[in-house]
């Protein structure tokens, strides 16, 4: 798994490539922490994530909780249908706004 952090003014986008499971979740979490420390508006670009385990979903929720405590906003971008299905079945989806593209994410986050 690889994480790239990109800044768009006050918005931070994390681009994730690869699977997020219990092996890679700690690194994902470290990167997310770097992002949430400097920004309250976070976009997670997940179109190149094929599988997310329970541990991965938990990191998403930690990011959400962290940002919510700062009155910020998190948007998920390009989540595969299969992952959305799992997120819906396990309830994680209820916490998130999901958009298709980076542009949509930036629009949503700018308004937040």
């Amino acid at each position: 798994m690889e994480v790239t952090i990109k800044d768009f003014d006050e918005i931070t986008i994390l681009e994730v490539k690869g699977n997020i499971d219990s092996k890679t979740a700690p690194e994902f979490e470290r990167n997310a922490k770097l992002a949430t420390d400097k920004s309250e508006k976070i976009g997670l670009e997940l179109s190149q994530v094929e599988f997310m385990s329970s541990a991965g979903l938990r990191v998403l929720l930690m990011i959400y909780r962290n940002i919510k405590a700062q009155n910020g906003r998190v948007v998920l971008i390009g989540v595969s249908e299969e992952i959305q299905d799992v997120m819906s079945t396990t309830g994680f989806i209820n916490f998130f706004t999901i958009v298709e593209t980076l542009d949509e994410a930036l629009t949503v986050l700018k308004q937040a």
């Binding site: 385990s53 329970s54 979903l57 299905d85 799992v86 079945t89 396990t90 309830g91 994680f92």
Partner: peptide
């Protein structure tokens, strides 16, 4: 009994049902 049993997420799925 969980759609996500194959991913080992049956606990979250059941709790989500109960919460709902």
């Amino acid at each position: 009994f969980a759609a996500t049993g194959k991913f080992g997420m049956q606990v979250d799925e059941l709790k989500t049902l109960i919460k709902e």
